[in-house]
């Protein structure tokens, strides 16, 4: 029977495809949240595989905090066009016009208003009953316990103590009107799995993942890139050109760069395997308060 042994990547792929199809079959109005990051790129590829030779039967939604790296937006627009995706972009425009941003309001307020609230606005506006997210369980402690089909009440809140049991690959997809499910089809993938898959499948990713000379400022021990002139002058004038890359992508003032010479996936993996920092520590938002991610998730953030 050894010829029926399959690699872990094939196994993870089969599991993810099954999850994605299950949602498409059982929900009336699903959406796939697309963050432009590498995990999202893998998730979108898995969706394409799930419905091949058909088209992915649901739209992608990007919640734009208006503080993303410019290269991310450029990548998103090109890639969506090339692949003929049904892409919805939503921002909290009212807050944006009022000038909410990380430099003026701090990372907590900014994340809450421009990410969490913006996401909730979009979910309410389009009445999605299921939303795919590209979170992985190996990323962060509270995610290690979250279900693949994660139930949210009418206020989009997650209750970690009251999760639905989830056994085998039989998923409970029942929700009342107004309630929804967040679905994490790549829950069981690790960071290395993602990179290996991107490499084998030749999935395009935002160039920010690769090392390049970029202007960065050191802020609370984190290297923050100067991506536009919204960074306060007293900070941006301290910018230095450094060979850096990003392990995760988010709002540019909240996403730390790491010094690196890795310009290929192989080099990234090599660096990762010998790395001394885990992935999310380059995200400033996690340090705001103890158990901060769990708190955000309870409030509706992914």
């Amino acid at each position: 029977m050894s010829s029926y042994k399959i690699s872990h990547l094939k196994q993870l792929e089969a599991e993810s495809i099954h999850i994605i199809r299950e949602v498409a079959a059982e929900f009336e109005n699903p959406v796939m949240l697309y963050s432009i990051g590498k995990d999202s790129s893998v998730m979108v590829r898995l969706a394409e595989k799930a419905f091949y030779p058909g088209k992915v039967p649901f739209p992608l939604l990007h919640v734009d905090s208006k503080w993303k790296f410019r290269e991310m937006i450029e990548f998103r627009d090109n890639y969506a066009k090339e692949n003929n995706w049904d892409l919805i972009v939503h921002s909290n425009m009212k807050a944006f016009e009022e000038g909410v941003g990380p430099f003026t309001h701090g990372s907590q307020v900014h994340t809450d208003i421009m990410k969490t609230q913006a996401l909730l606005q979009a979910l309410n506006k389009y009445k999605f009953d299921a939303a795919f997210g590209g979170a992985r369980r190996d990323e962060e402690k509270s995610r290690a316990k979250e279900r693949i089909f994660s139930f949210r009440d009418k206020f989009h809140q997650w209750d970690p103590k009251n999760q639905r049991p989830e056994l085998w690959d039989t998923y409970n997809t029942k929700v009342h009107k107004g309630e929804s499910i967040r679905v994490f089809p790549i829950s069981n993938w690790t960071e290395l799995d993602i990179w290996e898959y991107i490499r084998i499948e030749q999935i395009p990713i935002v160039p920010l993942y690769y090392a390049k000379e970029r202007p960065v400022v050191e802020l609370h021990g984190t290297l923050v890139m100067v991506d536009d002139d919204r960074m306060p002058k007293e900070l941006s004038k301290k910018a230095q050109m450094k060979m850096v890359r990003f392990r995760t992508l988010g709002c540019y003032p909240l996403t730390g760069a790491i010094e690196s010479n890795a310009t290929t996936i192989e080099a990234i993996v090599q660096e990762m395997m010998t790395a001394t920092k885990s992935e999310r520590t380059t995200r400033v938002i996690d340090f705001d308060q103890e158990a901060s991610m769990e708190q955000k998730k309870r409030e509706g953030y992914f």
Partner: peptide, 21 residues
Amino acid sequence: DKDLSKTSIEAFLEQDQNKDL
């Protein structure tokens, strides 16, 4: 190993992606 050469990282990936679970 802390200093994997480029070829060894490729070899590592080839081997790693074929592991079972």
